[in-house]
Design a binder for these strands. Structure first.
Length: 485
RNA sequence: GGCCCCGUCGUCUAGCGGCCUAGGACUCUGGCUUCUCAAGUCAGCUACGAGGGUUCGAAUCCCUUCGGGGCUACCA
């Protein structure tokens, strides 16, 4: 029996989680769910100068919002915690000491300045910059001398001659010659651990079986494997690696602040649905193999396999995300749509959230559902139903003050006044009979004038439905008001 | 510079030696529908980076080349 699959997502929250992080998290999660395995969430906060509590909490919040639930990690706990590396310092210290004792690692007394000088020289000589092994085999006298100078040492892993090979699930057989993998630092001079130590130790201790991560970590894999060896892990207990291709910005550079929106918080504020974001991101670097594209989270889990992940990088395309978001919004039930819409309307101060307002919003949602691609468009679309100080947008004013329009409005007023059952059918029947048939006007001209008078804009939800929602009193008073302009 | 990864329409992709005069989706263009805007629907544009091989046959295999990206930290 093969062991149960455990996939981990281990971000280093040095800022808000961005699109690339989330795509990785999504794949990690989907793979765990697909295989019936465990999804583990770990915070890599060994770089205390860059990771903050605020970012950690934001990361937790973002994953929850997206619906990527984890089985082990912050808040939910688990048998292999703690899941914040900053709380596991003693564990790393133990292994670092052991590595030194085993001579797998050694103290390096070179100062940052000296190392930089070496690299500078290497660059000048057109050589590959990298640690030159200066402190690999210091004598006791040399060590004593350094100590007398008061030098603090880092712990460096000794890379043996030879190479490392491993099978990447996405890229196949990978081979790295140790000539190009210099001895690397495990522990800083102040005693704090580095990612290089912590990832490897944690993946083993937390019994992670599959490491799916960004391809930027591909060339650091031999270092992780070196740590497994030093830990005495047997080959069959090494995690399996799969290096995901990048998500890039429009100009082919890595996605960044200046190159497309990266922060998931931005997408949330804009009114993208989590399911749309996940659906779109899943299609970046992966496809189910057939022509299916509109997938629910459930279908995603059922269909997702690492083998189907592409090896080439993908460009982020906002237009396609928008298209998918529009699809997802249209697929929402009215109750769900209402739940998503309300916060946007309240935040924009279109409504306060009162019961009668919510009821009206609920009636109005069906007519705007197929007209928006983002939830943030809702306030502008429904504003006309709620504004106290109604005013026609300046750029459309002329279309309602011209004499032809005046005739249309005057006639409309006359025809609408007697209507007792204020429904869009009755409104439409009355206006069509008078404006189109009797006055012989083109619908777009006639209805255009009424639209501007009642909704304040040339663009609105369907006119008759809008007027029904607005109510008879408000509709008539707005038309009457337009007549006086 | 060195090491590594990658290369099919504008974009995301299907394709894993013959089913490909390369399919789907988004975008774009045009038509239909139509009270505006959408939605829907129909049609169209556009791709195997280049050059060599291997083969009866290559987008699919090999080599070279060009192009893009990553790593080369006491970041992750």
């Amino acid at each position: 029996m093969s062991k149960k699959i455990k996939v981990r997502f281990a971000p280093s929250p040095t800022g808000d989680l961005h699109v690339g992080n989330i795509r990785t998290a999504l794949f990690d999660w989907a793979y765990a769910r697909h295989t019936g395995g465990t999804f583990l969430f770990r915070i890599e906060d060994t770089d205390t100068t860059r990771v903050t509590d605020e970012y950690i909490n934001a990361a937790i919040d973002t994953l929850k919002w997206l619906g990527l639930d984890w089985d082990e990690g912050p808040e939910v706990g688990g048998d292999n915690g703690p899941y914040l590396q900053s709380q596991r310092l003693d564990i790393y210290a133990h292994w670092a000491a052991k590595f030194i004792e085993q001579k797998d690692a050694y103290h390096c007394y070179c100062s940052p300045e000296e190392l930089e000088a070496v690299r500078e020289a290497q660059r000048a000589a057109n050589q590959a910059p990298g640690y030159n092994g200066h402190c690999r085999d210091l004598t006791v006298e040399q060590i004593a001398a350094y100590k007398t100078q008061g030098r603090a040492a880092v712990v460096r892993m000794r890379m043996p001659d030879g190479g490392t090979t491993f099978n990447d699930l996405i890229r196949g057989e990978m081979a790295f010659d140790h000539k190009f993998v210099p001895d690397f630092v495990l522990v800083r001079a102040d005693g704090s651990p580095l990612y290089t130590l912590a990832v490897a130790v944690d993946d083993i201790l937390m019994k992670v079986t599959h490491v799916l991560r960004g391809e930027d970590l591909l060339s650091s894999t031999p270092r992780q494997i070196r740590v497994y060896q030093a830990m005495g892990v047997s080959l069959e207990d090494y995690p399996v690696f799969a290096h995901l291709p990048f998500v890039m910005g429009a100009d082919n550079a890595k996605l960044s602040k200046r190159n497309g929106e990266v922060s998931i918080a931005w997408y949330r504020d804009k009114g993208f649905l989590p399911e749309a974001i996940c659906n779109y991101l899943a299609l970046l670097g992966w496809s189910p193999g057939d022509d299916r594209e509109n997938l629910t989270m459930k279908e995603l889990c059922e269909l997702f396999t690492v083998e189907k992940v592409n090896s080439s990088p993908a460009r982020f395309d906002m237009k396609k995300l928008e298209a998918i978001n529009g699809d997802k919004i249209r697929a929402l039930t009215i109750d769900d749509f209402l739940t998503w819409a309300l916060p946007f309307l309240i935040k924009a101060q279109v409504i306060s959230g009162a019961e009668d307002e919510v009821a009206l919003v609920k009636r109005a949602l069906p007519i705007i559902q197929e007209r928006i691609i983002m939830l943030s468009e809702i306030p502008a679309m429904l504003k006309f139903l709620f504004v106290k100080d109604f005013a026609i947008e300046p750029e459309s004013l002329s279309k309602v003050t011209e004499s032809g329009a005046k005739d249309v409005l005057a006639r409309s007023l006359k025809e609408l006044e007697p209507i007792t059952d204020w429904t869009h059918e009755a409104i439409e029947a009355a206006l069509r009979a008078s404006l189109i048939e009797e006055m012989g006007l083109k619908p777009r001209i006639a209805f255009g004038a009424v639209r501007i008078a009642t909704t304040g804009s040339t663009i609105s939800p369907p006119l008759f439905e809008s007027m029904e929602l607005l109510g008879k009193a408000a509709s008539l008073s707005r038309i009457a008001a337009a007549l006086t302009l």
